[in-house]
Simulated assay, not measured.
Amino acid sequence: MMPVPEYHLHDVVEMKKPHACGANAWGIMRLGADIKLNCTACNRTIMLTRFNFNKRLKKIIKSNATQEEG
């Protein structure tokens, strides 16, 4: 079984497919059953279910974990 990646609010993530504007970096704006993402290039906002987000996530570019813990 593959481990679930740790992501936090305001992390910047890379998805498997780029956005229509050409950017591939997204900022996490909301976490819950649905995850709200904001395109870093054009500021378009989308919402994905947690299942679809985990399936489409490629990697975490910038983590915000240290700021949340402290």
Rank of each mutant, 00 (worst) to 15 (best):
E6R: 12
L31H: 01
C42R: 01
N24R: 14
C39N: 04
P18C: 03
M47L: 10
K36Q: 10
N64Q: 02
N38K: 15
V13C: 03
E69C: 09
K58Q: 15
H8E: 11
V4Q: 01
T66K: 07
F53E: 03
M29S: 03
N43I: 07
P3H: 06
M29I: 09
A20P: 04
G32L: 03
K58P: 08
A41Q: 10
C42E: 04
L31P: 02
H10V: 07
N52D: 14
L57W: 03
R56Y: 13
A20K: 12
H8R: 09
V4L: 08
K59F: 08
A25N: 13
I46R: 05
L37K: 01
M47S: 14
L31E: 08
G70W: 05
I28H: 03
A25K: 15
K55L: 11
I28W: 04
P3W: 00
N54W: 00
H19T: 03
W26A: 01
R56V: 12
L48D: 02
R44V: 13
N24L: 05
A23G: 11
R30P: 05
T66Q: 09
M15G: 04
G27Q: 15
M1R: 14
E69W: 04
T49A: 02
D34K: 10
I61Q: 00
K59R: 15
N24H: 13
N38P: 01
